[in-house]
Structures are given as structure tokens and as C-alpha cells.
Computed example of a mutant assay.
Amino acid sequence: MRGTGAKLCLTPVPYSSPLDRGLSMHQLVYTSVARPELTSADLFQIIERSARNNPSCDITGFLFVRDGTFLQYVEGPLMALDDLLGRLEKDPRHHSIRVVHRAPAQVRAFPNWRMKRLSNSDDALRELETAWQGQSAGLPSAVRTFLAERRAA
């Protein structure tokens, strides 16, 4: 979600193991508050740019927006997620970033979602659960709680 459209992916420094290089698979979930002046066109641009840029960073995931609040789930190499989080913290289109889940992952939960926008409908949780089927761990509780709270609002 960077206003300039620029993207950066860190090039791993050659260390002795994938863990040392930050190449191990991780999950990151954060929430943030959209600036009041954020438009639908801005949101479309965020999704479009993310979907275009994420493959080169090996990041997949989804973005859920409702009532001015973002929840984003991303998965990929640890270094790429750290780099992304650093860029997100500088993005003027939102504020109050709060990481609510961060964990290593054995496999990708959403390998085909370069950046999927989830709607505000009641089907969002079912769509996530369907995509998550077969994973050893359940959908992160932070995601489940966020969607349940938004559905109840």
C-alpha cells in the first residue's frame, strides 16, 4: 500500500541456510485504519499494484476492507514480509498498523491469491475457510475474530 507505486524486494544475502537468509515461509496479519480521504479508486489501485508486484516478492494473500479498517494477510519469505511491513508503515493511505498474527508456515495457504480483495459479504469467511482446507493449522484466530466482528457490526 505505497502511495508512490514503487516497490522493493530485498535480495537475500548468501548465508548458510534458508532460515538465515529469511527465505523460510511465514504468515503475517495486520490491521490498520484507512485515511478518511481514501477512495474506491485508491483501493482498486492498492489491489492492482499488489497483485502485479507480489509475484516478484513471492508474496500471496488477501486484503479485507470494511468501514475504514484494513485486515491484510500475507504469506511469503520472512525477509519479503519484513520489507513489506516496513513499506506499509510509511504508506500515507493508512495509519495505526497493528500486527495481530505472525508465525512460520509449512506451506502457503493461498498460493493462487497474489492479492485477493475480499468483500464485505458473509461469504468472505466461507471463502477463506474453503481456500484454507487441507492446512495443518486453522485460519489464524485474528482473521476469524476480525471477520466475525465486522459481520456483526
Rank of each mutant, 00 (worst) to 15 (best):
R2W: 05
R2H: 10
G5M: 13
A6I: 07
A6F: 07
K7T: 13
L8R: 12
C9T: 12
L10P: 01
L10I: 13
L10G: 08
L10N: 09
L10E: 06
T11K: 14
T11I: 06
P12W: 08
P14S: 15
P14F: 10
P14M: 08
P14L: 13
D20Y: 06
R21G: 14
M25A: 12
M25F: 09
M25L: 15
Q27F: 02
Q27K: 03
V29A: 10
V29Q: 08
Y30D: 05
Y30G: 03
T31F: 06
T31R: 14
V33P: 00
V33W: 06
V33L: 15
A34E: 13
A34I: 11
R35L: 10
R35M: 10
P36Q: 09
P36N: 07
E37W: 09
L38G: 01
T39Y: 11
T39M: 15
S40N: 13
L43N: 05
Q45T: 02
I46H: 02
I47A: 14
R49C: 03
S50G: 15
S50V: 05
N54Q: 03
P55T: 09
C57Q: 07
D58N: 11
T60G: 04
T60C: 06
F62A: 05
V65L: 06
T69M: 12
F70M: 02
F70E: 00
L71C: 07
Y73V: 01
V74E: 00
V74W: 00
V74N: 01
E75H: 01
G76K: 00
P77S: 05
L78G: 03
M79R: 08
D82I: 05
D82V: 01
D83N: 13
L85H: 14
R87C: 15
K90W: 02
K90G: 11
D91F: 02
D91W: 02
R93S: 14
H95V: 07
I97W: 13
I97D: 06
I97R: 09
R98N: 15
R98M: 14
V100N: 02
H101C: 04
R102E: 08
R102P: 00
R108Y: 13
A109S: 11
F110N: 04
W113M: 03
W113K: 04
L118C: 08
S119L: 12
S119R: 08
S119W: 08
N120C: 11
A124H: 03
R126Q: 15
E127Y: 03
E127D: 14
L128V: 00
T130A: 15
W132S: 03
Q133M: 07
Q133R: 12
G134R: 07
S136T: 06
S136K: 07
L139M: 14
P140T: 05
P140V: 07
A142V: 09
F146C: 06
F146W: 11
L147V: 10
A148T: 10
R150D: 04
R151H: 15
A152R: 12
A153K: 09
A153Q: 13
